[in-house]
Design a protein around this nucleic acid. Structure first.
Length: 278
DNA sequence: CACGAGACCTGTTCGC
DNA sequence: TGCGAACAGGTCTCGT
C-alpha cells in the first residue's frame, strides 16, 4: 500500500483526527504496548516503553514514505513498508488482529500501528536526521525544477524505473506511482536515465507530480484487503491493468519484471529503448 | 559500481 | 474441493 500519497493521507488523518476523534498533536502518551518486538528498530522495547511514557506529541508530518511524529525530546519515525497502517481509535476498541505497537493517549483514544506482514518499522530517536538525511528530494518539493532534476538524472546510468524508486535519489515513489508516472510521461521503464532529454525530463517531472497529486486528492490507493479509504485504484492507467487496452491507443497493457518488480506499460505509447544507440 | 537473489512476513488468488 | 505456487504497496544485505 503505502507510497507517498498513502503516507501523506495517513499523516493528515493523524494530524486532524478521524471519525470524530481528535488528532494526535497535543496528546500525552500514558502508556505504550509492544506486541511484536521486531517492529521497533530502536530502541529495544523496554527502553522504548520507559522513554515514551508521559511525553506529549507535538506535530505529525511526512518525509518521503516516513511518518514523523515530534515527541520532544524524541522523534518517532514510522515506516509502513508493505502492509502497515496507523489508526486513531477509541480506547475501548478491541485489539485488532495485526496490531504491533499501540500508544494509549490521555483522551481515551489510542494510536495503533497495524501491520499484517510485519515489515514495518519504528524508530524512537533524538537524531532523526541520521535516517532521514539518506533520503533524496521530495518529488512534491516546489523547489524541484526540471533543470535540476535533469542534472540529477543525466549522470545516472540506471534504468529509469529502479532509479525513480531509489529512495536516496527521490523520496516517495513506489511501484504503483512509478508505473503510472512513466506511462503518463510516455517513457519506457527500462530506458537508461542518461539517455533522456531535458524535454523528456520536464514531462517526467510533471507526470510524477501529477500522479502523486491525484493520488493524494483521492486519499491514496486501496488494493486487496490492505488499507482502506482511498480510491485512486479506480483510476490506474497501467498498474495491474495487464492485457487491458491502453486508454490512449488501445494496445494491450504489458507486464514485465524490472528490478524484480512487476512493471506495467503500454508497448506503443512507451516504446522499447533502442539498445544499439546506448 | 551495478545488478540480482534472498531474506523478512502473512494473506489472497490462481492453476491444476 | 484441495493444495501448492505465484504474487503483493518496501527495503536491506550479501554475493558476483
Amino acid at each position: 500500500m503505502p507510497e507517498l500519497p498513502e503516507v501523506e493521507t495517513i499523516a493528515r488523518t493523524l494530524r486532524l483526527g478521524s471519525n470524530g476523534l481528535p488528532g494526535l498533536p497535543g496528546r500525552t502518551i500514558t502508556q505504550a504496548l509492544v506486541l511484536w518486538e521486531r517492529t521497533l528498530a530502536e530502541p529495544a522495547s523496554q527502553e522504548f516503553l520507559n522513554a515514551i511514557q508521559g511525553l506529549t506529541i507535538q506535530t505529525v508530518s511526512r518525509r518521503g514514505k516516513y511518518l514523523v511524529l515530534e515527541i520532544p525530546p524524541f522523534n518517532l519515525l514510522i515506516h509502513l513498508r508493505m502492509s502497515g497502517d496507523v489508526r486513531i481509535e477509541p480506547l475501548s476498541t478491541q485489539q485488532q488482529k495485526h496490531d504491533r505497537v499501540i500508544l494509549l493517549l490521555d483522551n481515551d483514544t489510542r494510536m495503533a500501528f497495524n501491520d499484517t506482514r510485519k515489515f514495518g518499522r519504528m524508530w524512537l530517536t533524538k537524531n532523526p536526521e541520521r535516517i532521514l538525511d539518506r533520503l533524496g528530494i521530495d518529488p512534491l518539493n516546489i523547489l524541484l525544477q526540471p533543470e535540476e532534476f535533469y542534472a540529477c538524472l543525466h549522470p545516472k546510468k540506471k534504468m529509469l524505473k529502479p532509479l525513480l524508486m531509489d529512495q536516496s535519489f527521490l523520496a516517495g515513489l513506489g511501484n504503483i506511482y512509478t508505473d503510472e508516472a512513466l506511462y503518463q510521461a510516455r517513457l519506457h521503464p527500462t530506458l537508461r536515465a542518461n539517455s533522456i532529454t531535458l524535454e523528456q525530463t520536464k514531462h517526467l517531472l510533471c507526470a510524477i507530480q501529477s500522479v502523486l497529486t491525484e493520488g493524494i486528492a483521492r486519499n491514496g490507493a486501496s488494493i486487496d484487503w490492505v488499507y482502506r479509504g482511498g480510491t485512486f485504484q479506480n483510476h490506474f492507467k497501467v498498474y495491474r491493468q495487464t492485457g487491458k487496452p491502453c486508454q490512449t491507443c488501445g494496445s494491450p497493457v504489458c507486464r514485465i519484471i524490472v528490478g524484480q518488480r512487476s512493471t506495467h506499460y503500454c508497448p506503443t505509447c512507451q516504446p522499447e529503448p533502442n539498445h544499439r544507440e546506448v
